[in-house]
Amino acid sequence: MEKKKKKWRLNKNFLPGLAMVGPTGLWMIAFMLLPLIYVIAISFMTKGLFGGVVWTPTLKNYQDIINPVYGKVCLKSLKIALLTTLFSLLVSYPFAYALSKVKKRWKSICMLLIMVPFWINGLLRLNGWVTIFRETGPLNTLLTKLGLPALNFMYTETAIVFGMVYTFMPFMVLPIHTSISKLDSTLLEAASDLGATKLHTFLRVILPLTFPGIFAGSIQVFIPSLGAFFISDIMGGGNTMLLGNLIKNQYLNARNWPSGAAFSVLLIVFTLVVMQIYTRLGGDMDEMV
């Protein structure tokens, strides 16, 4: 939202605004806000004998989170999400930087090329990697021919991180690219005129100025990688249980909705904390897209 005052038609009343914004407002309240509140509510309730929810308040679902088995899943998810964010950053920052140097004529094509992969279903693209990395797949055939040791990391945590970086990295490129494009080139010239080395300019000028993009991009990678269950299904071969898989299992297989809800609330709280930090640091939510 812009801060500057809109002079015109500010005093026109509540009604026309409500008529235009109302449908969206009602829709989002009914299908987004209320369901989330419901999830928070059932996370404090008891599981019914045959699934479903019994409305007896309890904290058991939250105590379960600390239970070592579940606790381990949470920690592992956190670790994988952090690694995914880190590697995505290491790839997307230099990439976004290079992208910002592309000549205008080629820029839109380059940007489009980041979007195009999304037109092929993500599961299939991941499966493309499974094919490549398979024990007897093309990569290992090539490596053996070259006399190099074969790589066998399919169905491990490494493979999951790889799959997550592959899936979510594009979401990091865009915000970083936006903040790099906004860099004022005169500042960089000033830094170099004042005798800063390239490394120094990067660390003291470029990096701090592009921090909002880094942060927005990191959120865009970190949060979905906490919840995505299909990546560990494909790349981890179902051997690794992450928070997303756990929530899905509690809902669909164990039919323990209150427990699944408690883990969801954990994710919600986590997300809200991260977002608070982001907006407190002056981040603009519209730049998340």
């Binding site: 809109k6 500010l10 605004g17 914004v21 989002m28 987004m32 919840g227 997303g244 994710l267 897209v289």
Partner: peptide
């Protein structure tokens, strides 16, 4: 509507709009 008019619930609605952008899809 949000561009033209200022009204009381605007900020609230605006905040709800951000939920799907940040909350994990599974939730």
């Amino acid at each position: 509507g949000m561009h033209r008019y200022n009204f009381r619930l605007k900020k609230f609605i605006n905040n709800i709009l951000y939920i799907p952008l940040v909350i994990p899809e599974i939730v």
